[in-house]
Design a binder for these strands. Structure first.
Lengths: 231, 231
DNA sequence: TCGTTCACTGTTGTATGGTAGTGTATGTAA
DNA sequence: TTACATACACTACCATACAACAGTGAACGA
């Protein structure tokens, strides 16, 4: 197992519990594909690597299992779940259902402060694109979608989206490595926020639909190029 | 704390782990309002009551915290979260977004076997209504919505819905105690499945919308009558 | 050569002790 | 009587030890 990449920032003292820190680190590593799908994880080994006991690691793995990012097979072991093209399509379906409803509501009411912050998010995303920084780009992308949801007063919707988004992001991390695929995404983001500014629900829904459709457009080719990561 | 009502079916030997059993029992007790919102829970006390150690109880509580059914406050205690009218509205919003998309898809393709099983579900629901058996009614209601989602090939959508539904069901359990409020729900279910049978997406969406709207229609009066359970 | 058994290793699951933080009650002084 | 300080009980959190089980491979017998 190659878990050497795991951050060992126990001294960070962020106030979170050890279990929460371990969960966050593991989740990030899984989404960034540093822990590849199919990788076997051992509570003991992770605990030794991070210098903590098995208990918080165990709780972190249980939490990740709830998000379907790992699979705990009793008495046999834990593995990072492989990517399933079928589940990706399902995830996009659910995500689109929620986010289109969200932008429709955003056209009715949207928090001005959130609207202001989105301008900055888009700027930082453009900077990340020029720097070809995948991870920073993805982080700002997350900020964008969160701002849309919370700005529309749909905090719960965002928490649901975030969980689903984690799976899709694994595929995005494969896609973003390709030739400039960040540019279109920024344009799509701008189209969404412009439609919201114009209070045009149909245009906003349309923009969100095309945005989410584009994300998994290359799924077949990505799967073909990364067969080992798919089930 | 009144956790005496907790089932102590450790001898059930269902194959699940102790932690999973405890989680299931607690979740059911919370949704059925046997554990009232605001109730303080103690790992130690639950463990003693159920005759298990604190560890599986702890894992169960963490899982319930992920579903936002309990709140774990470090070093202070764990409480059953109170019902929030605002969050109920948000939950219904997200649920409606997903389920309307699901029925729309169900009008395109629907598994015949699932369609057949739904007839039985509705029959059992009618029986539960006549027997005024709230809990059995709710169980069949869950089966109905699960059948719709899985029949349309949206298994992931159902898993998301189920989590959200748990919160709404707490309010439903208050509502169903009132004068015959089960009858309309069955009619609404029938309207939904009839629209799907007719492959009429607009009608199906409309039926689902009215169904979900009706569920929380009495929210204000319910809150007024159960102020202690709300935040 | 093939099939069976059995010990061994590695894994998750559970139990228990210890620790630090929080809230509360009690005592004490003004 | 009130304000504050201190002691205590309770909590979740983490570490450690033990138990139960699955998988593997080697030894053994047919």
């Amino acid at each position: 197992m190659n878990i050497q990449s795991l951050k060992i920032e126990k001294g960070a003292e962020t106030g979170d519990s050890t279990a929460a820190q371990v969960e966050r680190d593991l989740r990030e590593a899984i989404i960034r594909l540093e822990l590849k799908p199919g990788t076997r994880l051992s509570e003991q080994e992770i605990a030794d690597t991070l210098g903590v006991s098995r208990q918080p690691v165990r709780e972190a793995l249980i939490a990740l299992a709830k998000s379907k990012l790992v699979e705990v097979r009793p008495k046999r072991g834990t593995v990072v779940v492989k990517i399933s093209a079928r589940e990706m399509m399902e995830a996009r379906f659910v995500r689109a259902a929620i986010e289109t409803a969200v932008v429709r509501r955003a056209c009715e009411t949207f928090d001005p402060w959130m609207r202001a912050s989105i301008t900055g998010i888009l700027a930082r995303q453009e900077a990340a694109r020029q720097a070809q920084d995948f991870n920073r780009f993805r982080r700002e992308d997350e900020q964008f979608h969160m701002a849309i949801a919370t700005g529309a007063g749909c905090g719960m919707a965002w928490s649901v989206i975030a969980d689903i988004k984690a799976h899709i992001d694994r595929v995005c991390n494969l896609q973003l490595r390709k030739a400039d695929s960040m540019g279109p995404l920024i344009s799509e983001h701008e189209a969404i926020i412009h439609a919201i500014d114009a209070r045009d629900p149909e245009a906003a829904v349309e923009a969100m639909q095309t945005h989410l459709s584009g994300i998994l457009a290359d799924l077949p080719s990505i799967e073909a190029e990364n067969l080992a990561l798919f089930e």
